[in-house]
Design a binder for these strands. Structure first.
Lengths: 227, 227
DNA sequence: TCTGTTTACCATTGTCTTATTGGTTACGAA
DNA sequence: TTCGTAACCAATAAGACAATGGTAAACAGA
């Protein structure tokens, strides 16, 4: 194993020298392969071998249609709705809801106005009188969102909307067709009452716990049987 | 005031009839004004008056370059990083962090592996030996993210990243220049120790409370004096 | 036979141009 | 004045085109 067996024509060395000499800062794009191989006087295949080595070393990264860039590949942000949706699952969604929504409810109990609470009660009444699961879920959604609105924190509301969007995408096909409308004694009705009641009482701890109990019921129903 | 003073040519009535007859479901786009006014045999001005009435009634919505659509105008999603950033403020950001991150820490105490905890300790050590505020904040960021990673919930991690992106954008210009590096007895060092210690002990409640105490200190420093 | 070069093609991405659309204004006719 | 017509504007959408990394086949040279 001779040294020139590793880098026969010195393409890699030549490329390193070029990068050291060129005025390229981090995240800047270097010339396209078709130009660069002419500048260095090597074939495109040899150049790509050297580039592959540097990429393996983490000194640069490449992407079709974009180019070749200095530095570390930008981590694909998980903070993106589509990528988050494609990588998660219903169990994670419920766990996240159980973590976050009770705390939202706690803050709602502190900040909700009378109008907010009236809005929640309206949503509850409409969900009770829903004539289809689709209607019920619409009002259920709106109830949960009105609680998030009551926190008077736009960022928190945005986080809730994000979570909600992921939830809808993940449990998409889940259409309950076995019954045409919710039972009058559907568990959610009583649980919603408890949540909104605690918010109206300004009982922050009870509000949070009621929401947690509600979501845990939903999770149980979701993961064990369908509904 | 005669009846035909309200709708002289009956354009509005004609348009209502057209919409009732046409096979247009919710969210579907109706023909552009230039076509529609020919179909109905009225001038574009008259058509636009009728459309304005229906829009005021909430039966349709219009937008330049897009068209005219049946149904309610889609609410601009707050679940968007840029809009959320532009409407929130540092106080909301801290409130949201104090609500969410302790719960993340609680779950991390349950799910963290030994490797996760080692990663957290590495971040703490690096932040202690940082020679600039910029370095310190980089390792502080990475510590908080490693805690979110330890939850083993990709959706929760995505939510954390979202919150973090907003935080960075909101408190952007805030560069601490009064000292070149953090004090060796900076409050965060001890608080980070308590958080990671509780995670290592699998003490979920203490982990959550330690994180809450830490963030409340950060909030106090942020809102009262700068740092 | 093996290695490297050339060439062509592909899928993805970015950029530029063009067309469409609601909104507005000016002008003229009734 | 009132209303229809035309023209223009800004925002948006859609398509055309070019550029780029990735890949395989054909070819040449040892």
């Amino acid at each position: 194993m001779t040294t020139d067996g590793v880098d026969p024509q010195g393409t890699l060395t030549q490329l390193r020298a070029f990068l050291a000499q060129a005025p390229l800062s981090v995240d800047s794009r270097l010339p396209p392969e078709r130009e660069l191989c002419q500048q260095l006087g090597v074939s495109r295949g040899e150049l790509r071998k050297a580039l592959a080595t540097l990429e393996a070393e983490g000194q640069l990264w490449r992407h079709v249609g974009k180019g070749t860039f200095i530095g570390a590949r930008p981590a694909e942000s998980l903070a993106d709705l589509s990528t988050a949706t494609s990588r998660t699952n219903p169990a994670e969604v419920m766990q996240t809801r159980i973590l976050i929504e009770p705390e939202i409810t706690r803050l709602a109990a502190l900040n909700a106005t009378a109008a907010d609470i009236a809005e929640m009660r309206t949503c509850m009444a409409r969900s009770r009188s829903a004539t289809s699961w689709r209607q019920y879920e619409s009002w259920d959604n709106r109830l949960h969102r009105s609680i998030a609105e009551a926190t008077r924190n736009t960022l928190l509301l945005a986080m809730f909307d994000t979570l909600n969007a992921v939830r809808r995408a993940v449990v998409w096909g889940r259409l309950r067709a076995n019954r045409t409308r919710p039972d009058p004694d559907h568990h959610s009705f009583k649980e919603h009452e408890e949540i909104v009641g605690a918010i109206a009482d300004r009982d922050m701890n009870e509000a949070a716990q009621a929401m947690r109990r509600h979501l845990q019921t939903v999770e149980r129903k979701l993961l064990n049987y369908s509904q």
